[in-house]
Design a protein around this nucleic acid. Structure first.
Lengths: 143, 143
DNA sequence: TCCTTATTGCAAAATATTTGCATTAAGTAT
DNA sequence: ATACTTAATGCAAATATTTTGCAATAAGGA
């Protein structure tokens, strides 16, 4: 199986975006995260090699190129690796620790599609996020 | 059936919040809207009788009191009337005109509940929004 | 290695949200 | 109706967040 970083290079070429230190770092940060991250978190996690301005701009261009994917959660914009790295899915997220698990359910996708149609809309997309508390956080009674 | 404005008064008393011109106006603006609104939209719609600072604070207190409900949509915070006025539901929204239709489906609620459990989380909530293009916007070919 | 131009960094502008504090007024008691 | 208590407001200013202009830098093809 292909390395994700190889796919990154391919995708960047496909999108005719230059592969820079800044962009590669954003890619690695998201690759290593167990959950989608906000711009602020990406900036904080990065070594500080790149300016926050540049992170804003890079996240924007990478997202437009489909290399990243916007995950609107609550009132925050989070980002994760895009379709080429991770197929379409949704998230079940622990409210305590923030860790999130991918959810993919074909029935669910169909259901949302049909529900949209039943309201008279021609479906273009959906947002779907589940929240709860994970076992680990439930067990640790140390509030 | 009870007038919504009467319910508003009741709810305000229950929450021990004072009924002010500002708060009543926010209530009316949301009552008359065919979709959830952002703070900015509420401020713009209000006659300008109240300062934007006050709208921020009122929306905050009304939301905490459950009189309004936060509708996280995409990267925006939208607000609509809360449970006492409108029972739990989700939205199907037209991407062109922004109008939204309430969706309530018991099966869907159950499904989300079970899906959450199946990931190992103890369910606490969910986010669910459908998007599409409505018939009216599809018909008007005037891009 | 050279060349073109996309990308970056910095500073500053534009936007969005929050806070401190004196003033106003809602709701209760008199 | 009047007085009183204190929540709520308005204003100014502080913070926070995101965007933009522009000169300097560096990615990638020639």
């Amino acid at each position: 199986m292909q390395e994700l970083s190889q796919i990154f290079d391919q995708e960047m070429r496909r999108a005719r975006l230059r592969i820079t230190r800044n962009r590669r770092e954003i890619f690695y940060i998201l690759k290593n995260s167990n959950r989608p991250l906000s711009i602020k978190e990406i900036i904080k996690t990065s070594k500080g090699d790149s300016s926050f301005t540049s992170v804003y701009r890079s996240v924007d261009s990478l997202t437009h190129a489909g290399i990243l994917r916007l995950v609107p959660r609550g009132f925050k914009n989070l980002y994760e690796l895009g379709e080429a790295f991770r197929p379409h899915h949704h998230h079940a997220t622990c409210e305590k620790c923030g860790e999130s698990v991918a959810v993919h359910d074909a029935d669910l996708e169909k259901m949302m599609h049909h529900l949209t149609i039943s309201t008279g809309l021609k479906p273009t997309g959906h947002q779907f996020e589940l929240f709860g508390v994970c076992r680990r956080c439930r067990d640790s009674k140390d509030l």
